[in-house]
Each structure stands twice: as C-alpha cells, then as structure tokens.
Amino acid sequence: MTADHNPGYAEAGRSQVDAAAEAEPAGFRLADESESYALRVNGRQESVKAAWLGESLLYVLRERLGLPGSKNACDQGECGSCSVFLDGTLVVSCCVLAADAVDAEVVTVEGLEPGEGLSDVQRHFLDAGAVQCGFCTPGLIVAVHDLLDRVPDANELTVREAISGNLCRCTGYGRILQAVADVQQERAGTGP
C-alpha cells in the first residue's frame, strides 16, 4: 500500500498533530482528525495521533504502530493476509475502520505468542515447510490459531473451509494442511 493508492492517506500527514486525550471512551462520541485515538493491540494501549479517520486497521497497524506482521496483499478482503483477532473474532484488518476499533481487543500475528518464542502453529509451519514466499503465512497462522482453538479436532474438510479465505500462491496448500495436522497431533498428545 502506498499513500497515493488512496488519496485519503495523503491527508494524514497534513492533519494537525494534537496530543489530546489518549484514551477515548466508547459510546456516542464524535471524533475528527484533530483528535488522537487509542487502540488496544496485543495487550498494549497504543495511541494513534493525528491520523485520517478513514484509515483501515491494517494501515494503522503497519504504518503507524510498527506492526508489519499483518500483510497487505489485496486491501479488499479477498486474500486473508491481514487476518487479525478483533475481540476474539477472526477478521481481515483491511476491512476494519481503525477508528471504529477503539474499544476492541486487537490481536495480531505478533501477539499470538507472548515473549520471543514461536507458537506451536508457527513452529509446525516452519517444520513442515509450509512457508515459501511467506506473504500469506501470518494470515494463515492467525486463521489456524482461530480454528484449532475453537475446533481442536477439525477434520480436513473443516480445515480447508477455515483457511479458504487465505490465499497461498506458492505451496499448493499440501504442506499447510500437513502443518495443521501436525499441530493437532501435538496438541492431542498423539504426535510422533
């Protein structure tokens, strides 16, 4: 994504910087670009200052909050590369208005595993060779966490449906499905 991609983003740099209230209450409240707003991302309170209020959550995460894990491939909800949790629900962050996420808990791929290590899904993606160019990987990791936390024993059809909105143009999905099966085995204690 570039600023000229959307005329709205160009305006962000011109808008007045205002160190006003960091935290915004939920509810019926008007806000304009002279205000800052707060987002709760990966358990941390983040402040978005002087931003155009039309920005997507994906843009704000990547360009304003230094969280580039969520990828921007399509910007239209088609590819799943920007998948995040919004109040525990799997969504594509390109289709979330960031200024409408102020009282939600956002969890990105960076926040799945507290600390420096990898989550079990991330580890098995690496071990199974489910990562090639890597662009789709963060979105898939988030989507697979969502699925396996809800349906630990998902069969292959359920897995395929759950990742049907995450496009991978490298792997052909075979090793991704293998990685998911490996996580399931490990979590069930039936792995090798």
Binding site: H5, N6, P7, G8, A26, G27, L53, G54, S56, D75, Q76, G77, C94, C95, V96, L97, A99, D100, D103
Partner: peptide, 27 residues
Amino acid sequence: LLAGGTDFMVEVNFGHRRPTEVVALRR
C-alpha cells in the same frame, strides 16, 4: 453507515468513497 465494513472499507481503501461523516453501528 458502517456495519461489517466488508463493502464500505474496500471502497474507502481504493479511494472510491471519501466519507466525511460515518455512523459506526458495530456497538
């Protein structure tokens, strides 16, 4: 009016829609 955003935000992201006032209904 903004509900799930899956149509609205696509148009905003591509500059086809330039909202000046939005009522977000999610809550």
